[in-house]
Every structure is written in C-alpha cells, then in structure tokens.
Design a protein around this nucleic acid. Structure first.
Lengths: 191, 191
DNA sequence: GACAACCTACCTACTAGTAGGTATGAGTAA
DNA sequence: TTACTCATACCTACTAGTAGGTAGGTTGTC
C-alpha cells in the first residue's frame, strides 16, 4: 500500500469515530461500528489507534487544531462583530442539521467515564474555545458593536452554555428551537 | 420479605440508577454497577425492571412527577418572580455540587442510542419542564417582575439551554462557572 | 398453597485488546 | 536485473471480561 492510502484510512477512522462520538457519545460506539463502516477489521483500527483512548485523544486534538485555524482566519477578517458572532453560531448550526451535539457537550456528559488523558484534552479544548470567545466578546464591546452586562468571561460562559444546551435540546424539539435560542442571544448582545 | 422491603429495594435501585445516569450517561452504567452497590444480584434488578429500558423509563417518569410536584408547590407560593427563578436554578445547583448533569442533558446527549420508549418519555419530560418555564416567564413579565425581549418561549429555550449547558461545563471548569452563568441570566431577566 | 422477592446458573453477543501471520512496496546491494 | 531486507498496513484468530437477559429453583410471608 502507498503512503497516501495509509493516511487516508487513518483519516477515515477519525472522521467516522468523530461522527459516532457526536451522535452517540463515547460509550455509545465501538471499534466494530467503525470497522463495519469502513469494511476493515477491528485489528486495523488498533494498528492506527492502539487504544480507544488514543482515538479519543486524536479526535479532540484534531478538533482543537481545526478550531484554532478557524479562529485565526476569522480574527484576520474585517467584519462587524455581529457577523463574526453569526460565524461562531454557524459552527453549531452545522451540527444541528445532522442532529449531532457539539464535541464539548458530548465529552462533558461522558466526562466521568473518560480516561484521564481524554479528560485533560477536553479541558484544554474547552479552555481554548473559551479564551477565544471571551476576548472576542471583550473586543466587540470595546468597539461598541456588542453590548452585555457583567464581564466578558461571564458572557462567554453564558453564550457557550446556551449554544451547547440548545444543540442538545434540538433532539427533543426541532431545529427551529436552536434558531430561536440564537436569536434570543443576539437580542441581548447585539447592541 | 415484607411489602415495604420490596418497595424499598425497588426505590434503591431507582435511586442508584438515577445517580449513575446523571454521572455517566445511559451507556456508561450497567446492572452490575447497581447490583454491586446494593449487594444484590443482577437477576434481582431484572425482577423489578425486566429490561434496562423499563428502568430508564421509570427514572424519567419519577423525575417528571417530582418536577410537577415541585412546580405545583412553587406556583402556590406567593414569592417574587426573581425568587422563584432562584428556586428553579437551585434544582440545577444541586446537581452541580455532585458534578452531575441534569436529566434532560444526559438523555439528549445519548438520545440516538436510547430505546424508542425512553426517547418518548424524554420528549414528554422536557416538554413538561418547558411548558412550566414558559408560562412562569410569561406571568413574571406580565407582573413586571421579569424583563426580556422576544417571546416567553424564546426566553424559556435560552434559559433552559443555558442551565443545561452550564451544568456540563462545570465538569471542565469549576462550580463557580455555573454561578457566573446564573448571575448573567439574572442580569438580563430580573428587571 | 400462593405469591413476592430473591437466588444460582446459565446464555449469547459484544467489548477492548493482543499475538502473530501476510501482502505490498520501497531501498539497497551484487 | 535480481534478490534481500525492511517497514507499513493490513489480516486471522484469539483472549478475558462484560453486556443485557433468561430459566428455574429457594425462601419467607400472608
């Protein structure tokens, strides 16, 4: 097998495992689900990711890198803060369409059952997102484009909690309830 | 064995199963965890709850009854809306102290792996909570004790999503972040 | 004697994970 | 060119342990 085919399989495993994680939680999928979907054997997954922990850590790290790339790209754009906030909400909106939850929500709910390494990666990932969100909100307020009481940290917590919760609530209501929640957030912060 | 001992075991099973559900999710615990904690055998749990589905449904129904009793009791009290909102947040705060998530959040995250009956019970439970929250907010606004833009339904969605998300976020931050989120919600709605 | 509440003993299916073998291709060396 | 070596990426075949669940027996109480 060629080099690029090897990389491809590893990437496919990650893609499917990430989907399964956001669909059913860390304890809701097994190597069998992945191998079945890719038409390979369980042992092949163990070759790329010896332990399920390794797979879990890889998913979080990849998502973390993806977010940092996304954030860096958005920061360099000259857009009004409300449009940037829309972009942030759009990340979640994409999960809603597939009735998936966000990575943070999935991992936090399963947190107590996660191996230590995954717990640590989850903390790092969430802290990265929170740092970006807080400084984004702070900058927006400074520019007079956003408006909220309290500290940017408080508002970042509320915003993140709302989006994370709203995405889960969609599973017992409808995608429209996510839009309604976003609309309500924006009524508050978009001055 | 006496009647009340039977009832007691069944109640203990429910208590422990509910704790496990809020700790680790529906796929994160097994009959073994319950039987071990109660020093009984797996088969005894199957006597009271033939299928895990039956156990899951019973947990949700009990929580739903508990909430309706709670809501009925609060509605009959003559308290300012902001105090009543505090009481509602206090339900969640109790979970935070044990680093548990709320029932809705746990079930929604595992939703796609739940048996059909549990999915339906989850929808009913959440709809009960939402109905109460919406009419509570509406009444509070009418009395001039609460203040929010948009409809009471929109605000109910935002409030619920925030609390549900905040409780989960505690697992990667600290209990203080829950308090900060609640404070932020109240800055908006408590006129 | 009937029934409730438990038990032992078992089942099948699945879990993550391992040991060891094989096919393929790239790199080197005569 | 051929032949040897090596690593990659997969495989078969297996393990021990756990999952939810069942059949049928025992015990204590009305």
């Amino acid at each position: 097998m060629k080099m690029d085919e090897k990389i491809d399989t590893k990437k496919q495993i990650l893609d499917i495992a990430e989907d399964l994680l956001l669909d059913r939680g860390y304890n809701g999928f097994s190597y069998k689900d992945i191998s079945g979907a890719l038409n390979i054997k369980n042992a092949s997954i163990h070759y790329h990711f010896p332990k399920k922990t390794d797979l879990g850590v890889a998913i979080i790290q990849r998502a973390s890198n993806r977010f940092q790339k996304w954030a860096g790209s958005l920061d360099s754009k000259d857009l009004p803060s409300s449009k940037k906030l829309d972009e942030f909400c759009l990340i979640f909106k994409k999960f809603v369409e597939q009735k998936q939850v966000c990575l943070g929500g999935a991992l936090e709910t399963d947190f107590k059952t996660l191996p230590e390494e995954m717990q640590e990666e989850t903390r790092l990932f969430m802290s990265t997102v929170f740092q970006w969100l807080e400084s984004f909100l702070m900058a927006g307020k400074k520019k007079g484009e956003l408006n909220f009481p309290g500290t940017a940290k408080d508002q970042a917590l509320l915003t993140m909690a709302s989006l994370q919760g709203a995405i889960q609530i969609v599973r017992v209501t409808s995608p429209a309830s996510f839009d309604a929640t976003v609309k309500q957030i924006k009524r508050y912060v978009c001055a």
